[in-house]
Design a protein around this nucleic acid. Sequence first.
DNA 1: AACGCGGGGGC
DNA 2: GCCCCAGCGTT
Length: 350
Amino acid sequence: MDFSDRILSWYAQNKRDLPWRKTRDPYNVWLSEIIMQQTRVAQGLPYYLRFIERFPEVADLARASEEEVLKTWQGLGYYSRARNLHATAQRVATDYQGTFPATYKELMDLKGVGPYTAAAIGSICFDLLTPVVDGNVYRVLSRYFGVELPVNSGEGSRYIADLAGQVMSKESPGNYNQALMEFGALQCIPRNPDCLACPLSDSCVALAKKKVSQLPVKLPKKAVRKRYFNYFMPVDPDFQTLLIKRKDKGIWRGLYEFPLLESELELPDEKAEAQILEGVFTQLNEPLKFVKCNPIPLVHKLSHQHLFVTFRILYLGHGLRGGVPITKMQSYPVPIPIANFMETVKNSYF
DNA sequence: AACGCGGGGGC
DNA sequence: GCCCCAGCGTT
Protein backbone atom coordinates (compact mmCIF):
# COMPACT_ATOMS: atom_id res chain seq x y z
CA MET A 1 0.00 0.00 0.00
CA ASP A 2 1.23 3.47 -0.80
CA PHE A 3 0.99 6.52 1.44
CA SER A 4 -2.55 7.57 0.57
CA ASP A 5 -3.95 4.03 0.80
CA ARG A 6 -2.52 3.58 4.26
CA ILE A 7 -3.89 6.93 5.38
CA LEU A 8 -7.33 6.00 4.03
CA SER A 9 -7.18 2.57 5.66
CA TRP A 10 -6.23 4.10 9.00
CA TYR A 11 -9.05 6.64 8.64
CA ALA A 12 -11.68 3.99 7.99
CA GLN A 13 -10.87 2.43 11.36
CA ASN A 14 -10.15 5.50 13.47
CA LYS A 15 -12.23 8.45 12.32
CA ARG A 16 -14.32 10.35 14.82
CA ASP A 17 -18.06 10.60 14.45
CA LEU A 18 -18.46 14.33 13.75
CA PRO A 19 -21.73 15.98 12.64
CA TRP A 20 -20.28 17.70 9.56
CA ARG A 21 -19.12 14.32 8.28
CA LYS A 22 -22.72 13.14 7.92
CA THR A 23 -23.40 15.43 4.97
CA ARG A 24 -21.84 16.88 1.82
CA ASP A 25 -24.06 19.94 1.87
CA PRO A 26 -21.73 22.86 1.11
CA TYR A 27 -23.44 25.05 3.70
CA ASN A 28 -22.70 22.62 6.51
CA VAL A 29 -19.19 21.90 5.26
CA TRP A 30 -18.38 25.58 4.75
CA LEU A 31 -19.70 26.49 8.20
CA SER A 32 -17.70 23.73 9.87
CA GLU A 33 -14.52 24.69 8.03
CA ILE A 34 -14.76 28.35 9.01
CA ILE A 35 -15.45 27.48 12.64
CA MET A 36 -12.62 24.96 12.77
CA GLN A 37 -9.94 27.35 11.43
CA GLN A 38 -7.21 27.50 14.10
CA THR A 39 -9.66 25.85 16.48
CA ARG A 40 -9.80 22.46 18.18
CA VAL A 41 -12.75 20.17 17.61
CA ALA A 42 -13.67 20.18 21.30
CA GLN A 43 -13.92 23.97 21.25
CA GLY A 44 -15.63 24.38 17.87
CA LEU A 45 -18.16 21.55 17.99
CA PRO A 46 -20.71 23.21 20.31
CA TYR A 47 -20.54 26.36 18.17
CA TYR A 48 -21.22 24.36 15.00
CA LEU A 49 -24.28 22.74 16.60
CA ARG A 50 -25.53 26.12 17.82
CA PHE A 51 -25.10 27.76 14.40
CA ILE A 52 -26.91 24.92 12.60
CA GLU A 53 -29.74 25.02 15.10
CA ARG A 54 -30.08 28.77 14.92
CA PHE A 55 -29.37 29.15 11.19
CA PRO A 56 -30.43 25.85 9.51
CA GLU A 57 -29.80 27.18 6.00
CA VAL A 58 -27.60 29.80 4.42
CA ALA A 59 -30.62 32.06 3.92
CA ASP A 60 -31.23 32.10 7.67
CA LEU A 61 -27.67 33.21 8.30
CA ALA A 62 -27.90 35.82 5.54
CA ARG A 63 -31.08 37.28 7.10
CA ALA A 64 -29.58 37.56 10.59
CA SER A 65 -28.03 40.78 11.86
CA GLU A 66 -24.28 40.98 12.24
CA GLU A 67 -24.85 41.49 15.96
CA GLU A 68 -26.68 38.20 16.22
CA VAL A 69 -23.94 36.40 14.30
CA LEU A 70 -21.25 37.93 16.52
CA LYS A 71 -23.22 37.03 19.64
CA THR A 72 -23.49 33.40 18.51
CA TRP A 73 -19.76 33.48 17.76
CA GLN A 74 -18.88 35.06 21.13
CA GLY A 75 -16.02 33.22 22.85
CA LEU A 76 -14.65 31.52 19.75
CA GLY A 77 -12.11 34.23 18.91
CA TYR A 78 -10.80 35.56 15.59
CA TYR A 79 -13.99 37.55 15.17
CA SER A 80 -13.27 38.55 11.58
CA ARG A 81 -14.28 34.96 10.79
CA ALA A 82 -17.79 35.77 12.04
CA ARG A 83 -18.04 38.99 10.04
CA ASN A 84 -16.78 37.27 6.89
CA LEU A 85 -19.11 34.33 7.54
CA HIS A 86 -22.06 36.69 7.57
CA ALA A 87 -20.91 38.56 4.45
CA THR A 88 -20.40 35.32 2.54
CA ALA A 89 -23.81 33.98 3.57
CA GLN A 90 -25.36 37.13 2.11
CA ARG A 91 -23.26 36.84 -1.05
CA VAL A 92 -24.29 33.20 -1.58
CA ALA A 93 -27.94 34.00 -0.86
CA THR A 94 -28.06 36.87 -3.33
CA ASP A 95 -25.36 36.38 -6.00
CA TYR A 96 -25.67 32.58 -6.09
CA GLN A 97 -29.36 32.21 -5.19
CA GLY A 98 -28.48 30.20 -2.09
CA THR A 99 -26.36 27.59 -3.89
CA PHE A 100 -22.63 27.53 -3.16
CA PRO A 101 -20.30 27.77 -6.19
CA ALA A 102 -18.57 24.53 -7.15
CA THR A 103 -15.21 25.70 -8.47
CA TYR A 104 -12.01 26.38 -6.55
CA LYS A 105 -11.69 29.83 -8.09
CA GLU A 106 -15.19 30.93 -7.12
CA LEU A 107 -14.83 29.49 -3.63
CA MET A 108 -11.56 31.41 -3.19
CA ASP A 109 -13.41 34.61 -4.04
CA LEU A 110 -15.67 34.25 -0.97
CA LYS A 111 -14.69 36.30 2.09
CA GLY A 112 -13.02 34.18 4.73
CA VAL A 113 -12.33 31.35 2.28
CA GLY A 114 -8.63 30.92 1.52
CA PRO A 115 -6.56 28.13 -0.07
CA TYR A 116 -7.23 25.65 2.73
CA THR A 117 -10.98 26.17 3.01
CA ALA A 118 -11.55 26.31 -0.76
CA ALA A 119 -9.67 23.03 -1.14
CA ALA A 120 -11.63 21.44 1.70
CA ILE A 121 -15.06 22.47 0.40
CA GLY A 122 -14.09 21.68 -3.19
CA SER A 123 -12.88 18.18 -2.43
CA ILE A 124 -15.51 17.22 0.14
CA CYS A 125 -18.56 18.64 -1.63
CA PHE A 126 -17.60 18.60 -5.30
CA ASP A 127 -14.88 15.92 -5.65
CA LEU A 128 -12.31 18.48 -6.80
CA LEU A 129 -8.72 17.20 -6.74
CA THR A 130 -7.60 20.01 -4.43
CA PRO A 131 -5.21 18.98 -1.63
CA VAL A 132 -5.72 20.65 1.73
CA VAL A 133 -2.72 22.03 3.58
CA ASP A 134 -3.35 22.81 7.23
CA GLY A 135 -1.35 22.46 10.43
CA ASN A 136 -1.90 18.71 10.49
CA VAL A 137 -0.73 18.27 6.91
CA TYR A 138 2.42 20.31 7.56
CA ARG A 139 3.25 18.06 10.47
CA VAL A 140 2.44 14.68 8.89
CA LEU A 141 4.16 15.34 5.56
CA SER A 142 7.21 17.07 7.03
CA ARG A 143 7.78 14.08 9.30
CA TYR A 144 6.96 11.27 6.89
CA PHE A 145 9.05 12.76 4.07
CA GLY A 146 11.67 14.30 6.35
CA VAL A 147 11.16 17.89 5.18
CA GLU A 148 13.44 20.14 7.23
CA LEU A 149 12.54 23.45 5.61
CA PRO A 150 10.64 25.72 8.00
CA VAL A 151 6.97 25.11 7.22
CA ASN A 152 6.08 28.71 8.03
CA SER A 153 8.50 30.05 5.42
CA GLY A 154 7.52 30.72 1.84
CA GLU A 155 9.78 28.03 0.44
CA GLY A 156 8.73 25.47 3.07
CA SER A 157 5.00 26.01 2.64
CA ARG A 158 5.28 25.84 -1.15
CA TYR A 159 7.26 22.61 -0.85
CA ILE A 160 4.70 20.98 1.44
CA ALA A 161 1.80 22.15 -0.72
CA ASP A 162 3.46 20.66 -3.79
CA LEU A 163 4.11 17.41 -1.92
CA ALA A 164 0.50 17.29 -0.75
CA GLY A 165 -0.67 17.44 -4.36
CA GLN A 166 1.67 14.65 -5.44
CA VAL A 167 0.69 12.14 -2.74
CA MET A 168 -3.04 12.78 -2.59
CA SER A 169 -5.55 10.09 -3.51
CA LYS A 170 -7.29 10.73 -6.82
CA GLU A 171 -10.14 8.34 -5.99
CA SER A 172 -11.91 10.13 -3.18
CA PRO A 173 -10.18 13.46 -2.57
CA GLY A 174 -12.60 14.67 0.06
CA ASN A 175 -12.33 11.53 2.11
CA TYR A 176 -8.57 11.49 1.71
CA ASN A 177 -8.15 15.13 2.75
CA GLN A 178 -10.16 14.54 5.91
CA ALA A 179 -8.23 11.33 6.52
CA LEU A 180 -4.86 13.06 6.38
CA MET A 181 -5.99 15.79 8.78
CA GLU A 182 -7.56 13.27 11.15
CA PHE A 183 -4.34 11.27 11.09
CA GLY A 184 -2.44 14.38 12.15
CA ALA A 185 -4.98 15.21 14.84
CA LEU A 186 -5.12 11.76 16.44
CA GLN A 187 -2.01 9.75 15.50
CA CYS A 188 0.82 12.03 14.28
CA ILE A 189 0.24 14.53 17.10
CA PRO A 190 2.59 17.46 17.87
CA ARG A 191 4.20 16.08 21.02
CA ASN A 192 5.07 12.52 21.99
CA PRO A 193 3.29 10.70 19.16
CA ASP A 194 2.90 6.94 19.62
CA CYS A 195 5.11 5.93 16.70
CA LEU A 196 5.12 2.27 17.80
CA ALA A 197 1.43 2.14 16.99
CA CYS A 198 1.73 4.06 13.70
CA PRO A 199 0.84 2.29 10.43
CA LEU A 200 3.45 4.41 8.61
CA SER A 201 6.33 3.71 10.99
CA ASP A 202 8.19 1.43 8.55
CA SER A 203 8.68 4.23 6.04
CA CYS A 204 8.64 7.44 8.08
CA VAL A 205 11.85 9.41 7.44
CA ALA A 206 11.62 11.40 10.69
CA LEU A 207 11.27 8.21 12.73
CA ALA A 208 14.22 6.55 10.96
CA LYS A 209 16.38 9.61 11.60
CA LYS A 210 15.05 10.05 15.16
CA LYS A 211 13.83 13.53 14.29
CA VAL A 212 10.14 13.17 15.02
CA SER A 213 10.29 15.58 17.95
CA GLN A 214 12.17 18.14 15.84
CA LEU A 215 9.70 18.23 12.95
CA PRO A 216 8.07 20.25 11.63
CA VAL A 217 10.67 23.04 11.80
CA LYS A 218 9.13 26.43 12.52
CA LEU A 219 10.61 29.92 12.47
CA PRO A 220 10.35 31.64 15.88
CA LYS A 221 7.39 33.91 16.42
CA LYS A 222 7.36 37.45 17.69
CA ALA A 223 7.24 38.16 21.40
CA VAL A 224 3.83 38.86 22.86
CA ARG A 225 2.83 42.45 23.42
CA LYS A 226 1.72 43.61 26.85
CA ARG A 227 -1.21 45.99 27.08
CA TYR A 228 -3.09 47.52 29.98
CA PHE A 229 -6.86 47.84 29.68
CA ASN A 230 -8.58 49.90 32.38
CA TYR A 231 -12.35 49.51 32.10
CA PHE A 232 -14.93 51.42 34.03
CA MET A 233 -18.51 50.28 34.25
CA PRO A 234 -20.75 53.25 34.90
CA VAL A 235 -23.97 52.57 36.79
CA ASP A 236 -26.60 55.26 36.89
CA PRO A 237 -29.58 55.64 39.26
CA ASP A 238 -31.79 53.73 36.79
CA PHE A 239 -29.34 50.79 36.76
CA GLN A 240 -28.14 51.55 33.28
CA THR A 241 -24.57 51.17 32.08
CA LEU A 242 -22.68 52.04 28.90
CA LEU A 243 -21.45 49.71 26.15
CA ILE A 244 -19.35 50.95 23.24
CA LYS A 245 -18.68 49.11 19.98
CA ARG A 246 -15.00 48.62 19.06
CA LYS A 247 -14.75 50.01 15.55
CA ASP A 248 -11.09 50.45 14.72
CA LYS A 249 -9.05 47.59 13.38
CA GLY A 250 -7.33 45.39 15.86
CA ILE A 251 -8.44 43.13 18.63
CA TRP A 252 -12.14 42.46 19.19
CA ARG A 253 -13.33 44.60 16.27
CA GLY A 254 -17.12 44.71 16.20
CA LEU A 255 -17.57 43.60 19.82
CA TYR A 256 -18.85 45.79 22.66
CA GLU A 257 -17.05 46.88 25.80
CA PHE A 258 -17.34 49.27 28.72
CA PRO A 259 -15.63 52.67 28.46
CA LEU A 260 -11.91 51.95 28.27
CA LEU A 261 -8.69 53.73 29.08
CA GLU A 262 -5.69 51.93 27.64
CA SER A 263 -2.12 52.54 28.74
CA GLU A 264 1.05 51.01 27.31
CA LEU A 265 2.51 50.78 30.82
CA GLU A 266 1.02 49.65 34.05
CA LEU A 267 -0.38 52.60 35.91
CA PRO A 268 0.13 53.17 39.61
CA ASP A 269 -3.23 52.73 41.22
CA GLU A 270 -3.70 56.35 42.26
CA LYS A 271 -2.73 57.57 38.82
CA ALA A 272 -5.17 55.16 37.22
CA GLU A 273 -7.93 56.43 39.43
CA ALA A 274 -7.18 60.02 38.52
CA GLN A 275 -6.95 59.32 34.79
CA ILE A 276 -10.10 57.26 34.86
CA LEU A 277 -12.02 60.01 36.56
CA GLU A 278 -10.79 62.43 33.94
CA GLY A 279 -11.66 59.90 31.21
CA VAL A 280 -15.15 59.52 32.60
CA PHE A 281 -15.58 63.23 32.57
CA THR A 282 -14.48 63.63 28.95
CA GLN A 283 -16.16 60.51 27.55
CA LEU A 284 -19.47 61.07 29.26
CA ASN A 285 -19.09 64.80 28.93
CA GLU A 286 -20.71 65.23 32.31
CA PRO A 287 -19.48 65.77 35.86
CA LEU A 288 -19.73 62.96 38.35
CA LYS A 289 -21.69 63.51 41.49
CA PHE A 290 -20.66 60.38 43.26
CA VAL A 291 -17.98 57.86 42.44
CA LYS A 292 -16.92 54.63 44.04
CA CYS A 293 -14.12 52.56 42.56
CA ASN A 294 -13.63 48.83 43.05
CA PRO A 295 -10.71 47.72 40.87
CA ILE A 296 -10.87 44.03 39.88
CA PRO A 297 -7.59 43.00 38.17
CA LEU A 298 -7.02 40.03 35.90
CA VAL A 299 -4.65 38.88 33.14
CA HIS A 300 -6.16 37.78 29.83
CA LYS A 301 -3.62 35.84 27.79
CA LEU A 302 -3.93 35.64 24.02
CA SER A 303 -1.45 34.00 21.69
CA HIS A 304 -0.07 37.37 20.60
CA GLN A 305 -0.93 39.71 23.49
CA HIS A 306 -1.09 39.67 27.27
CA LEU A 307 -3.82 41.96 28.47
CA PHE A 308 -3.66 43.28 32.03
CA VAL A 309 -7.26 44.19 32.65
CA THR A 310 -8.91 46.05 35.48
CA PHE A 311 -12.59 46.73 35.99
CA ARG A 312 -13.95 49.55 38.13
CA ILE A 313 -17.58 50.10 38.91
CA LEU A 314 -18.49 53.78 38.93
CA TYR A 315 -21.74 54.82 40.55
CA LEU A 316 -23.10 57.92 38.88
CA GLY A 317 -25.32 60.49 40.51
CA HIS A 318 -27.16 61.24 37.28
CA GLY A 319 -28.83 59.34 34.44
CA LEU A 320 -26.93 58.14 31.34
CA ARG A 321 -28.10 59.06 27.86
CA GLY A 322 -27.91 56.09 25.50
CA GLY A 323 -27.44 53.76 28.44
CA VAL A 324 -28.00 50.01 28.43
CA PRO A 325 -30.05 48.43 31.23
CA ILE A 326 -27.82 46.17 33.29
CA THR A 327 -30.39 43.41 32.86
CA LYS A 328 -29.84 43.59 29.07
CA MET A 329 -26.07 44.00 28.90
CA GLN A 330 -25.38 40.28 28.47
CA SER A 331 -27.29 40.19 25.18
CA TYR A 332 -24.49 42.16 23.47
CA PRO A 333 -21.52 40.42 21.82
CA VAL A 334 -18.53 41.09 24.08
CA PRO A 335 -14.99 39.74 24.55
CA ILE A 336 -14.52 36.89 26.99
CA PRO A 337 -13.09 38.95 29.89
CA ILE A 338 -16.04 41.36 29.63
CA ALA A 339 -18.49 38.46 29.53
CA ASN A 340 -16.87 36.94 32.60
CA PHE A 341 -16.99 40.24 34.45
CA MET A 342 -20.67 40.72 33.54
CA GLU A 343 -21.46 37.25 34.80
CA THR A 344 -19.66 38.02 38.06
CA VAL A 345 -21.40 41.32 38.77
CA LYS A 346 -24.84 40.70 37.25
CA ASN A 347 -26.39 39.83 40.62
CA SER A 348 -24.58 42.53 42.56
CA TYR A 349 -26.63 45.13 44.36
CA PHE A 350 -25.93 48.28 42.41
C1' DA B 1 6.81 37.94 3.05
C1' DA B 2 5.47 39.43 7.53
C1' DC B 3 2.15 40.50 10.70
C1' DG B 4 -2.20 40.70 13.47
C1' DC B 5 -5.93 38.26 14.92
C1' DG B 6 -8.76 34.73 20.34
C1' DG B 7 -9.37 31.49 23.18
C1' DG B 8 -8.60 27.10 25.19
C1' DG B 9 -6.12 22.82 26.24
C1' DG B 10 -2.10 19.75 26.93
C1' DC B 11 2.16 19.06 29.04
C1' DG C 1 5.25 29.02 30.53
C1' DC C 2 5.13 27.38 25.85
C1' DC C 3 3.07 25.34 21.88
C1' DC C 4 -0.63 24.15 19.07
C1' DC C 5 -5.07 24.23 16.88
C1' DA C 6 -9.50 21.89 9.82
C1' DG C 7 -6.01 29.89 8.31
C1' DC C 8 -7.20 34.37 6.42
C1' DG C 9 -6.85 39.30 5.31
C1' DT C 10 -4.00 43.18 5.25
C1' DT C 11 0.12 45.66 4.48
